[in-house]
Every structure is written in C-alpha cells, then in structure tokens.
C-alpha cells in the first residue's frame, strides 16, 4: 500500500507540480506538434508512459547491479542503448502484430524524444527508488499529454483571435502563450528542474 501511494505521489508530482514539459522544456517540440491532433493524445500518453517506465526500470536495475555509474558519458551510452533496445523490440512486434498503421507510425516519436530519454537522468539525479522510477515514468506520459492539451487549446484560442498583429501571428503568439503556461507552473516549484 505504501509503495502504491509513493508511486502515485511521484506520478502526480511529475504531472502537475513538476510538469516536465512545461518546467524544463522536455518534449516540448513533440507536444507542440501533436497538439492539433487530440485524437492521438491517449495513444501518446500510453506509449510515452510505457517507454519511460520500462526504460526507467531497466536503467534502475542496471544501476543496482553494476553499481552507480558516475560518468555522464557512460550514462548516456547506457540509457541510449536501453531506450533503443526497448524501442526496437516494441516496434518490431508492433509491425508484425498490430495492423493499425497509425500506432506503428507514432511509435517512433513516442519513444525517441527528449522527454522519455531524460526520465532516467531525472530518476538518477533525484535518487529515486524503483517504485518512484515507475511513478515518474507513468507521470511523464500524462505530463506530456497535459502539456499538449494546453498547447492545443491555446492554439485554438490564438486562431480565433483576429486582432493579433501580423508580426505576432503564428509562432510568436504561440511561444508567448506557452511561456505563460510555463510561468504558471513555476508557482509550484519556484525554480527549474536542472
């Protein structure tokens, strides 16, 4: 029960309090690019959570067996290898077993982005236990989707606003909008992640 509570608290923390997309910019490009497609949100949430969680667990297990790796270059190599291996395995199975091409199409983006790749680093720097790593991984997917939903709704607000001056139309207004959301989330932490 305690483990589940800890897991849920870490997940909620990752989604709301320290939303990795809004407070650190992790996965922001992907969040902005998928924000106009809300019908893909659930898939992205599940895939990103899955990849983050599995990668976190494997990296945590490797660290516990091999001892703490100090070199960041070595960490990069290990985490990248784990992520690539997990992705290959899932993508290979998906291409054979799953008929829906949309799912196999978005698998690459869901797996290979800065958010998923950063989760093991965050777990390592925060010295998370295995349960916390799972919570962090699960929270990452939903943090991503929350950010994408906010950005998407903001894009629609901006689109409806006919009074935006031409030089601010498009990405400038979008950047300001996302900046304000990011500023709002700073109210929880008062600072940035790293």
């Amino acid at each position: 029960m305690k483990m589940i509570t800890g897991l849920l608290i870490t997940a909620l923390y990752t989604v709301f309090v320290q939303n990795l997309v809004m407070t650190s910019g992790l996965g922001m490009s992907e969040a902005m690019r998928i924000s106009p497609r809300p019908n893909t949100f659930v898939r992205f949430a599940v895939m990103i959570s899955g990849f983050s969680t599995v990668t976190s667990i494997l990296c945590n297990l490797i660290a516990s067996y091999t001892g703490s790796v100090r070199s960041y270059a070595a960490k990069a190599l290990i985490y990248a290898s784990v992520l690539a291996a997990v992705y290959f395995a899932v993508a290979f199975i998906a291409n054979i077993a799953v008929k829906d091409k949309e799912i196999t199409g978005i698998l690459g983006i869901a797996a290979l982005n800065t958010l998923v790749f950063a989760v093991p680093y965050i777990n390592d720097s925060a010295a998370y236990s295995l349960t916390d790593c799972i919570g962090s991984g699960l929270g990452a997917g939903f943090a991503f989707v929350l950010a994408a939903a906010l950005i998407g709704s903001g894009a629609r607000v901006i689109e409806r606003n006919k009074h935006i001056p031409p030089i601010f139309k498009g990405t400038p207004a979008m950047f300001f909008y996302v900046a304000m959301i990011s500023l709002g989330f700073i109210g929880f932490t008062g600072t940035q992640l790293f």
């Binding site: 497609r37 139309k169 498009g170």
Partner: peptide, 24 residues
C-alpha cells in the same frame, strides 16, 4: 502525418504564413 510539413503545422496553429488582413 505527425512529422508533418512546416506549412501544414503552422497553418494548423494560426494564420501563418501571411494573413493579408492582419489584426489591428
């Protein structure tokens, strides 16, 4: 579809590129 072109993505956000009757 996901990694879509610049034009489609930006149009899906707002009126970029180029809205002749920009807001005033």
């Amino acid at each position: 579809n996901i990694l879509s072109s610049t034009d489609e993505f930006l149009k899906s956000l707002t009126g970029y590129p180029g809205d002749v009757n920009g807001g005033d």
